[in-house]
Design a protein around this nucleic acid. Structure first.
Lengths: 219, 219
DNA sequence: AAGACTATTTATAAGGG
DNA sequence: TCCCTTATAAATAGTCT
């Protein structure tokens, strides 16, 4: 018998809490159905027990209702339908910080090992978080790589330009020198000449084009 | 006054239906809150009136609850995968969940939204697919970038080597020419000479030596 | 856990403002 | 629409099986 009106706070006694959960849950679902029937409303109700067990009801298709919800709730924020949000856990900050600490621990675990203690929903949340982090890292890395490539290409053209200048310069100097000595030798012969004189530059230019890629899979 | 017990079927009179909807809706939401608070349950409640207006309540994050729902209802309930915190009475799991839910939402928005046409389960599958695809693409892209960088660096050193050779060669040829004409000039003077003649090769050589390694700490 | 039993509390139908 | 009122239906806390 209802000896006294209870206050709405978490029931301490475990069994009493479970019993009440069972009873009130049924009541809630019944009310939901009744409202749906009486007033032609569409209703989706999802309940997770403290132990993680799922109970749900929907007057039509759960998926459709959820879609509709995400659609409407993002379109317009209607005031007055969410004063209820802040009810459940605003009482003790100690618990909140504790939970946050636990979550941090979970994150560490996810980064490292030991994922077995985690529930699926926790895993999903953490996965999302890690995913964003990963994306950001990837983006940053990408930018750096592209920047590097850009710099290298610039550098390459600079070197090639200088290279060309040097060759031309060499030709000019050689021509000048030869002019002073003999005159009249063609560019090819000059090239051949210093090819012997120095360390076969042509071969080097060729190899430079087909050189390998040492750290391509370095991840 | 409740003159008579009503039967649960659609109320014909429009105004009566609306009034009843309003009253019972409030009652339902109150019951939902109470259940959530009393028994540490997580509850999501979505109600659409016959006119399409949305009312919703969730004890924590709507998104998280919906995700959890689609997960559990899809995979035939495996008992024993309890989310970490629910055991020792954590009435504030809700708060943390909400924060994480908000983060998830933020992430979703970051990714570019408009996924609302899809059901949650579809979204999850899609997400997984995209994720693996993304990873592969990312890896491939990465390899390509690194390979390109590697090639460019090799090319750079070759160009630099050739450049150096050309300079040396130029010096030698110049020396040879001078030998043929005057003889006895030192290498330094020659270097200085074509330093003026050409476009400051020293500066170029310097830059070539200190090329950066942007991605040394990339991962 | 799951029913049954009440004494009470709560919700609410009908009506009025 | 919302807020009251009020009689009554419904829900349910506590207890016992």
């Amino acid at each position: 018998m209802v000896r006294q009106k209870i206050q709405i706070k978490k029931i301490d006694n475990l069994t009493a809490r479970q019993v009440t959960f069972s009873k009130r849950r049924r009541g809630l679902f019944k009310k939901a159905q009744e409202l749906s029937t009486l007033c032609d409303a569409e209703i989706a109700l999802i309940v997770f027990s403290a132990t993680g067990k799922l109970f749900d009801y929907s007057s039509s298709s759960m998926m459709q209702l959820i879609q509709r919800h995400s659609l409407q709730s993002e379109k317009s924020n209607k005031p007055g339908q969410q004063p209820l949000h802040t009810q459940s856990g605003s009482s003790n900050h100690a618990k909140i910080s504790k939970e946050l600490g636990d979550l941090t621990l979970e994150l560490k675990q996810l980064m490292g090992e030991e994922l077995q203690g985690l529930g699926m929903s926790d895993l999903m949340k953490l996965e999302k978080l890690v995913e964003t982090g990963l994306n950001r890292v990837g983006k940053t890395k990408n930018d750096k790589l592209l920047s590097e490539i850009s710099k290298l290409k610039t550098r390459e053209s600079e070197l090639m330009a200088e290279n060309a200048r040097l060759k031309q310069e060499a030709n000019q100097k050689l021509g000048c020198a030869r002019n002073g000595m003999e005159q009249g030798n063609s560019a090819e012969s000059i090239t051949n000449f210093h090819q012997d004189l120095v360390h076969r530059p042509d071969e080097d230019s060729d190899t430079s084009l087909k050189l390998g890629l040492p750290f391509s899979n370095g991840n």
